[in-house]
Structure formats: C-alpha cells, structure tokens
Write a protein that binds this DNA or RNA. Structure first.
Lengths: 204, 204
DNA sequence: ACGTGACCATGACAGGTGTCACGGCCTTGG
DNA sequence: CCAAGGCCGTGACACCTGTCATGGTCACGT
C-alpha cells in the first residue's frame, strides 16, 4: 500500500484526484491539504510515502513546500503536479528535491503509474518539458532584476515600484531596462509576460 | 441515470472529475472532451443530460460553447465549472443559457449535488460570487475599449496595437485612456489587470 | 428632426519611460 | 592584490504615454 498526501488549493481538483487515485488497489490517500504551509504538518502526522504537490498554492508555493518537506520527512518522495509547464519550474522543483514533475495535461491513467515510479525511487519528468528546460538555460535575470520585475507585475508606475522596494527611481529604471534587454522585450509589460511564461518569477 | 459530458482542457483534471462523479450510483459519464469546439459534436453523439464546461479552453471558450450547445442540444443543461471566480464570467454564463456556475474551490462532495440540482431544473450559483456580481455591475468598457485592452495584454507598444487593430495610434491612446479612467487605474497594465480580474475581457 | 453616445481621427502637451554614460560600494575568484 | 561582476545611485536625453480639446461620421431612441 502506497500512502499518499495530496496538496492542491482547488478543493474540487483535490477531491477528484483523491477519488481517481483511490480507485487503484495499491494506493491510499492518507492526507489532503489546501495550503502550502500545511504540507509539512500533515506529512508528519500521516507519514505518507509520496506527496503530490501543486506549485500554485496559498501560504507558501509548492516548490518551497517541497524543500521543507525534504528536510522534515526525508522518507517521503515528492511528485510535483502543476497546471503550467513553465520550464523554470522544473529546474526549481528538481533542485528542491522533487522526484517527479507532471503537468495537468497528462492523461489521467498515467498518474497512478507516475506515483508508483516515484515511490520505487525512479524519476518522472514530462519529456517535452525536459527538452524545453534544457534548450533554454537558467534565468538570465539577476535577483534584483527579478524583484523589480515582480513588483512591476501589478502594473504600478516606476515611483510605486521604487517605493515598495526602497530603491531610487533611477535604479528601478536601470534594472527594468536590463531585464527588458535580457528578455528580448520592448516594454516592461512584455518583459513580465516573457519572464512569467518561462517560470523566472515566483508563482502568484 | 444522469448522463454527463465533461469538458476541460487539463486531461488530469478531466479524468479525475470523471472518476469522482462515476462513484455516484446515479451518475454516468458518457463523454469527455478537451476543447471547446468539440463540445457540440460530442453532445450530439452522446446526448448527455448535463454538460460540465470549463471556461478556459482552447478552440472556443466555455461560454461560447455553452451558447452553441444551448441551440444545438436544448435538452442538455449546462453547469459551468471554472477555476477563476471572475464576477463577469457568471453574468456571461447565465446569459449564455447556463443553469449553474461552480468554482473549483467548492468541496468535492457538493459537485454531485450540484449536478443533480441542475438536472432537476434548478439553478446552482456560488453564493459569494453572486453577491460580488450584483454589487459590481456590468462591464463599463465599450466594445472597442475592450478590444484595445485585450490587444494590450501581450505588452506591445501603442504602435503595435494600432497595427493589429487597423487603428490610428491616437485612437488607440484615446481608447486606452478611457479604459484607464473607467477602471480607476493609472497605467494600461494596471487597467488590464483590473479588467481581467473582473472578467471584463475574454478568456486567454 | 433632434439629441445622445459610441467610434474614429488629429494635434498638442506634460509627464513618464527606456537608454546610456558615469561613478561608487561591495563580494568573489584568479 | 586586483579584476570582474552584481548592486545602487545620479544625470541627461529621445521617445513613448496618458490626457485633453476638437471635430467628424454613424446608429439609436425620443
């Protein structure tokens, strides 16, 4: 019997995944949580063999939750299950100690197999996504550039960004200009779009 | 036996929902599709009693699919099941002839009941969402303003927007300015964010 | 027929934005 | 030690944006 923990913020999806996996004879859902910061506590209490983690979650995101879970309950393998196949997410997930990475586009029948493979110590990675992740390397953005771009997501003006980050307006403009150049964009909004699509910015 | 059609672009979610509903004795999944433009054909072939439609789908979105389905197979009731609780979506869904509107945050157990209610002719609406939809009225944007804002989503410059919409740059600026004023924003990016959050722009 | 309002366009203007050059402070690594 | 590179800041400049005034066409409801 493989014991499972399921973490997904959408209750309907979470319950449906549980129902789907519960159909398998060798799988057993022992915990369900809706927030990233509930993962570790639930795992300690229910000691699952495999944890299915969504990337987009309130509290802390699935990537951070995977890191914490790795330290708190090393016996539990992590299988990331996410909506968006952003190449950057895969790298972050792997460096966070995840054993597998599956997008929600994959057929339902394959999920149970992915869980079994992860449980037996194998790595499960979406092949097309792995290719994308290899061709296009790491994020070219420096930490501050990512911060500034992140602050620019809500659409505020330079002054607003400078205010929230306690920076000079000139510095913000420089970081934005650099980020725009690196992403091949022509405006800050386009740069944000590119960065988000590639998973170079944190979820949210 | 209530016959069901499930439309969702994410294969995993679609399969999981099917598994969840299949557990009920009085429910039967007779068709699954991944694209909006496959809904009508599948419905004609399998003649379901209730169709669960996601709003975000490739091809045509769930709202348009609901309208087409309403005309092609009037005997089939429509229950929208969507990720984002944008107030504007609810209005559009209702005017498209949907009988119910459920967000994916709702508990899994309630879904089967929602399906049964819709099948028996009742309307099912998320109460909190209904309240939001009432307090904040229809979209204040005119058709062209919405078009321009939609074109501005990718982050292009005014010239680019004017090019794709075959408009003068001055006209684009005017429409953007008007949209910015109506949304209470200060920049176009912020206006886009507000409009998207309220469901005033088409999905995607 | 008339007013209203959406739509398109032009022109002009203040202010914001993106770019560049320059300098200074750090930490890292040869 | 010293170069390299990320980080922060200033200042200046061309360009783009957002706003406003103005005017024209068209469809509409009274």
């Amino acid at each position: 019997m493989i014991r499972l923990l399921i973490a997904d913020d959408q209750a309907l999806v979470r319950g449906a995944l549980a129902a789907l996996l519960q159909l398998e004879d060798d799988l057993e859902v022992v915990a369900e949580v809706a927030r990233g910061d509930e993962v570790v506590d639930a795992a300690i209490e229910s000691s699952p063999d495999v944890a299915l983690l969504d990337v987009e979650m309130p509290g802390i995101d699935g990537l951070a939750a995977a890191r914490l879970l790795r330290d708190a309950v090393p016996s539990c393998r992590v299988l990331m299950v996410t909506t968006f196949g952003r190449p950057g997410y895969l790298k972050q997930a792997m460096s966070a100690g995840a054993s597998g990475f599956v997008v929600k586009d994959t057929p339902a029948r394959q999920l149970a197999d992915a869980v079994r493979r992860v449980h037996s110590g194998l790595r499960v990675v979406d092949p097309t996504l792995a290719a994308e992740s290899l061709t296009q390397g790491d994020s070219p953005l420096t930490e501050r550039e990512a911060d500034v771009l992140q602050a620019a997501r809500s659409g505020g003006t330079v002054a607003a960004i400078a205010g929230t980050l306690f920076l000079s307006e000139g510095t913000v403009r420089n970081h934005l200009s650099s980020a725009i150049g690196k992403t091949g964009a022509r405006t800050r909004a386009e740069a944000v779009r590119v960065a988000v699509d590639n998973g170079w910015l944190l979820p949210h």
